[in-house]
């Protein structure tokens, strides 16, 4: 068993290094078109966002649609550290993620008592409140936005994405992760089995907020400018769509969902008027014919590395 795991890990590590190497190499050799490079970094950002929302919505089964709010908190605090205090990038990203996690914890405490759609509307409201707070704060530029120097490159974005995925994977496969899944599967039963459901909901929510904050930090330090409008509830919907499209509850699903949506958006850039109409039709058709998303939840029984193989199969089919 152990040996098998090791071989798998090795393959994954090689695969990850290979992706990194190919991209970094072509950037270094100057053969990478900048638009592709930008799309790749956007994919990284969205992968972190969707997999962290998956932690809340997919793994723990709590219906949150305010993820853009945490992204905003992470982005703005990271930007404040960089612009106002001239701090290093690592510190900025960390501060952004931690503040976002704290906000997630504080928000989660009262609201996670709510169920289903009520939680959804509460988180949506909270996301909007966060956005309105930044909108009204002249210190961070108000509506016109906050200019941030671009300090994120491919190495940073990719490294942080891999790190985030690793942490989330380990969390899901840990006792805590299993407890979260039990909350999703049946809250009352989990309660009866002695699992502190509130605690696990809050843990998942806080962790999700942490990574959303990290993604926001990467976004802020890559996009030159952040504006409150970027983090409206429509952004939360975008992330939710990625999660559900990939397969609710599947980590690799979230990754695939983020890649598919980002690439689709980039590929349709030449048809601006039609882009959202086409996306909408595809989305509806996708949900009707495959409501469990591209991957479903089936790889749950498999390890992360097993899923890697599945992803290949899925993309080949």
């Amino acid at each position: 068993m152990g040996k098998w795991m090791n071989r798998q890990s090795l393959v994954t590590i090689l695969g990850v290094l290979l992706i990194y190497g190919i991209v970094q190499g072509s950037i270094f050799m100057d053969v990478m078109p900048p638009f592709v490079a930008l799309t790749l970094i956007q994919i990284c950002i969205y992968v972190i966002l969707s997999s962290s929302l998956n932690l809340i919505n997919g793994i723990t089964g709590q219906f949150s649609i305010g993820h853009a709010g945490f992204m905003a908190i992470g982005g703005y605090f990271a930007a404040i550290v960089i612009v106002k205090f001239h701090g290093p990038l690592v510190l900025a990203l960390l501060v952004g993620a931690i503040v976002s996690a704290v906000a997630g914890f504080l928000i989660g405490l009262p609201t996670l008592r709510l169920n289903g759609d009520y939680l959804a509307i509460a988180t949506l409201g909270l996301g909007e409140i966060v956005r309105i707070i930044f909108l009204n704060t002249e210190y961070v530029g108000g509506a016109s936005g906050f200019s941030v120097p671009k300090t994120i490159n491919w190495t940073w974005a990719f490294g942080l994405t891999v790190l985030s995925i690793l942490v989330m994977r380990n969390f899901i496969n840990s006792t805590h992760g299993r407890a979260c899944i039990s909350v999703r599967e049946n809250e009352i039963a989990a309660d009866a089995m002695g699992i502190n459901t509130t605690k696990y909901k809050i843990i998942a929510f806080t962790l999700g907020a942490f990574f959303a904050g990290l993604a926001g930090g990467i976004y802020a330090n890559y996009m030159y400018i952040i504006q409150p409008m970027t983090f409206s509830f429509l952004k939360s919907f975008d992330i939710l769509v990625m999660v559900v499209l990939g397969g609710l509850g599947s980590l690799t699903g979230s990754i695939v969902g983020a890649i598919v949506m980002t690439v689709a958006s980039a590929a349709l850039a030449g048809l601006p008027e039609w882009r959202l109409v086409i996306t909408a039709v595809l989305l509806v058709a996708m949900m009707i014919f495959r409501p469990t998303g591209l991957l479903g939840t089936k790889e749950f029984s498999l390890s992360f590395l097993g899923k890697k193989g599945d992803k290949n199969a899925a993309s080949k089919n």
Binding site: P33, V36, S315
Partner: peptide
């Protein structure tokens, strides 16, 4: 076997990006 899969992923990924974003 898995190695091949991983390689294929990378290849497919880069391909999809290039074809996706790269209007000739």
């Amino acid at each position: 076997m898995r190695k091949i899969f991983s390689m294929a992923t990378v290849a497919l990924l880069s391909l999809s990006l290039v074809t996706g974003c790269g209007t000739t």
